[in-house]
């Protein structure tokens, strides 16, 4: 009775008129150990199908969140640029001020040096005064 049914199903199967449930039935029949000898030849077919179903895709797929990525990169770039320009300007101004200060200082130093020389020479005048006083006192 069972075998009869399977034979009928097989016939329908090869005409492609079986339903999925009926095909499932065939698959379970052929997956068991004792299959009727004259049906043994169909066993590889059904075993193959249930076997093929077990194959898995195991590779990892590199999914990158690309849209957000580019957006945030550009935001970061703009931020860096703005800061760069702002602080860069500040830095340059400071440098310029420093340079002007150094130059002025140099100029003043020059002036001071020359003044120094002037006062050295005036020191001799002092000597003259002393000598003059001595002469006056002696007389």
């Amino acid at each position: 009775m069972e075998l009869d049914n399977i034979e009928k199903l097989l016939e329908k199967y090869f005409e492609a008129t079986t339903t999925i449930a009926e095909e499932q039935e065939l698959q379970t029949y052929f997956s068991q150990k004792d299959v009727a000898a004259h049906l043994e030849q169909y066993r590889p077919m059904f075993n193959f199908f249930s076997n093929a179903k077990e194959e898995r895709y195991t590779k990892q797929v590199p999914l990158k969140p690309r849209k957000n990525y580019y957006k945030w990169i550009s935001v970061a770039a703009v931020a860096v640029l703005t800061f760069g320009i702002y602080f860069g300007n500040q830095y340059r101004e400071r440098q310029q001020a420093e340079y002007a200060y150094q130059e002025t200082k140099k100029a003043f130093e020059l002036l001071a040096e020359n003044f120094g020389k002037g006062t050295e020479k005036v020191a001799y005048l002092q000597e003259f005064e002393v000598a003059k006083q001595k002469i006056y006192n002696n007389n």
């Binding site: 199967y13 090869f14 005409e15 492609a16 030849q41 169909y42 590889p44 077919m45």
Partner: peptide, 13 residues
Amino acid sequence: LSRARKTVRQELI
């Protein structure tokens, strides 16, 4: 489908 199944059967036999 029917043709495919029958071809497979033929080859298997």
